[in-house]
Design a protein around this nucleic acid. Structure first.
Lengths: 256, 256
DNA sequence: GAACGGCACTTGTCCAGACAAGTTCACCCA
DNA sequence: TGGGTGAACTTGTCTGGACAAGTGCCGTTC
């Protein structure tokens, strides 16, 4: 075994290794179905103990990136659809990840007192002010989604200084240091109302794929409550699950 | 440290421990926000080495069930919505998990040659036989979902010996040793056609939440291709994601 | 040429130890 | 009484070792 290599950049070795292995997989250097180097080789190449290599590999196994059993090195598993927090939460970032041009047309930015229902959803008092934004979102110039967002006044006031036609509210708030930390998404279907129909250029009553989202800050407070309505032929949601790993998703009987 | 306890039931100790810990969390014995016993206590209680305890805890960390850092024992994290493979894949199992009565009415079980499109989806030759099942699914007697399933002939022929009005095809095939191993689900919205509308007792054109599923065997072959259409006020999908952990889900631009 | 057995190699499990980094509590001093 | 320091305790990281279970290849025998 080669000599001990101390951690650099304050990151533990096992994390650096797992990051490196992830990169090798995503770059195609280690491609689907191909075996990884043996543990002994990895220990030798990186000058670390077997336990450290195994810890890095365990992390990849937990993510479903590799699989295998005794006697043979692990192989790279089938890619599982997943998206980073930012790509999933931000339409703009999503469009860019597709190599498509995001667009937006703002219909309204308003400060209003929250009604009973909205206040309940956002854990606010009825009448408490919220900032509401209504936008049409486009992909490569095609109307794709109607977005109705409600932000707490504290967070949303910054939007009066932001050109909501320029792009991602998620990205802008994040750049201001707003810690948007967790999302909860409920997916269902609705009929296009008059506003939806007009903006999306479909008949009133057409089925739309609806995603209702609550976005939480680090302290668990709800910062955003939104309702996005997609043309279903332009956007879907895909998920995979296996016997070995639970999907962090559930089918629920009624709207929360 | 106490003496070595050999594994029983062919399951490694670390897995037995992580299963036990999961049970303690889901039963509420270790409830949200409360710290776990220290590693030293767990080692002592279970008569195992610290490495083994840490391996079990690492598994729970990877699932997001516990979190924490140096100097303090981990705490139980916020519950994340998730469902087991069986509960997500099987309407019957899902209903039972809700404490609701599942029901089904079979409209048809037929053996037919696969058309071009279906054959393509199922990696079959056009004209190759498939077994098609059309059923209405009910929750507590209320029409909830129209299910159109297509099985390979090899798997689906068993259904001619099964009373499809009695319950879960997924459960039945599994009991026959059919290894239904992985699912891929695409979620969108469609307008109810005449059949849907009539079965679900809604107006034609009403928005339905559609889940299209491919079910794979262990060897990666597609065994089932189905199209489930839910009344959106009776069933939704919920998912949560955080900056720390990717959701195994993606928004995609078009139907695969 | 095919089948079987043995051996070398591989991964999976579990143990033990050491050290670093972080937390908490008790005691002492101002 | 309050604040600071040190020690005990806790988790995180890394090392090394041993043994079991599984794989694959090579050699020998039929």
């Amino acid at each position: 075994m080669l000599k001990y290599v101390p951690p650099t950049f304050d990151e533990p070795i096992h994390q650096r290794l797992s990051d490196l292995f992830r990169e090798r997989i995503s770059s195609g250097e280690w491609n689907e179905g191909s075996p990884l180097p043996s543990e002994a080789e990895l220990c030798s190449q990186h000058g670390v103990s077997r336990g450290t290599v195994r810890q890095a590999l365990a992390s990849l196994r937990g993510e479903g990136l590799i699989s295998g059993g005794r006697g043979k090195p692990p192989v790279v598993a089938r890619p599982v659809p997943s998206q980073s927090f930012g790509t999933f939460m931000s339409f703009t970032e999503w469009a860019h990840s597709l190599g498509m041009e995001p667009g937006q047309r703002t219909l309204e930015v308003a400060r209003r007192p929250a009604g009973e229902e909205l206040a309940g959803k956002m854990s606010l008092q009825p009448g408490e002010p919220v900032i509401q934004v209504l936008r049409l979102r486009l992909l490569d110039g095609a109307p794709t989604m109607v977005e109705r967002s409600n932000f707490t006044a504290e967070v949303g006031k910054a939007l009066f200084d932001f050109d909501t036609d320029s792009g991602s509210i998620f990205g802008y708030l994040t750049s201001l240091g707003v810690d948007l930390s967790r999302g909860r998404h409920v997916i269902d279907a609705v009929a296009a109302d008059e506003t939806d129909a007009s903006l999306l250029e479909v008949a009133a009553g057409s089925p739309l794929l609806r995603e209702r989202r609550l976005t939480y800050g680090r302290d668990g407070r709800i910062l955003e409550c939104s309702d996005d309505r997609y043309l279903p032929h332009l956007a879907n949601f895909v998920i995979e699950n296996t016997r070995q790993s639970k999907a962090a998703m559930a089918r629920i009987p009624q709207v929360a």
